[in-house]
Amino acid sequence: MNETLIAQLNTYGSLKEPCFFMISYDLKSFDVQPLKNLPPSIQFQISETYCERLEPLIELHKKPITFEQYKQKFDALQEHIKAGNSYLLNLTTATNIMCNESLQTIYEKAHAKFKLKYKEKFVCFSPERFVKIHNNQISTYPMKGTIDANIPNAKERILNNVKEMAEHTMVVDLLRNDLSIVAKKVRVKKFRYIDKIKAGKKELLQVSSKITGELPLNWQDNLGEIIVKLLPAGSITGTPKRKTIEILESIEGYERGYYTGIFGIFDGENLDSAVMIRFIEKNQDGEVVYKSGGGITCDSDAFSEYQELMDKIYIPT
């Protein structure tokens, strides 16, 4: 547990000082700054809903790993599932892309509930909230399950799919247990509702749930403990969480870094935050990669999961 990170967040929370925070997937890297001092090189946007926009599409040219390479990782995860080491694992990878637009232009044109551009290092445009705290109530919104909206009866297909139901239920169970570590009266308020999002030339349906709990009146004094105890996010790891993280680190073969970490805003009274998915990163050599992934269970089909990973490489405009 990162004591420095916890101390910084606790300080801003107890002082009711509005701040920005960003934490990497492995909790080894973080950036916490008061909003009044936030440099222009860090830009963010948080909104409640999507709205229609008419931006021209940004073309991405993908150079993904081959299906054979993906299936090797997929099969390795299936062996761990058969051995009982995990029941759900969120397998991710980095795809080399070519795009003529700058990170700044991508940030400006991308359309999402949560957007972040961090210096000239990366930009993310996430549809997934991590936790929201309002009036001493904490809520989390696990997102698990994606389908092309243009498939006939897409909504019915994904909601009635046994594999998708099992995967989503496991994540909801995991997140409910996570919230119980920091909150009381935890309950699932809304189970498996559908959001439609634009994914480049496609539209996707994504399945989410809402889980809530009650925090003590002085929760701001313990802001750091609350956030860190919930990390990394269950929706982008799997269950059981600790063992699943070990397995993923041994098989994925790259550093997630800030991808699948979180960022958010504490406004002095309440908090909102997002899981950093839909993520484009520029490395030191100037190469650009798009990091994406999806959940794997015993019922998963390798080709379908590979296709989902590819479908998630887009800029929502």
Rank of each mutant, 00 (worst) to 15 (best):
T244G: 08
Q284F: 14
Y259K: 07
G224F: 02
E249W: 10
P232N: 05
I245N: 11
E249N: 15
E203Y: 15
D221F: 04
K210A: 14
E203Q: 15
G257R: 09
S250K: 14
I236C: 07
L248T: 11
L204H: 14
I226K: 03
R192F: 12
E252N: 11
L204A: 06
G238N: 08
L230T: 02
Y259C: 11
G224P: 01
L231S: 02
E246V: 09
K198I: 11
G257M: 02
N283G: 08
G253R: 12
G234K: 01
D267I: 05
E225Q: 12
S235G: 02
L231R: 03
E249H: 14
D285Q: 15
D267P: 07
S273D: 05
G286K: 11
T239C: 13
L271E: 01
G257K: 08
T239H: 13
T237P: 02
K243Q: 15
E203L: 13
E252V: 05
P232A: 04
R278E: 11
G268P: 05
F263G: 03
L223K: 01
S208P: 02
K243S: 14
K202W: 15
L271F: 02
Y254C: 11
S208C: 01
I277Y: 08
G213A: 01
K282W: 10
S235A: 03
S208T: 10
D285G: 15
L205P: 07
S209E: 03
V228R: 00
K241D: 08
Q206N: 06
A274H: 02
L215Y: 03
I194T: 01
L204I: 12
N222K: 14
I247C: 10
E281W: 07
I211M: 05
A199Q: 10
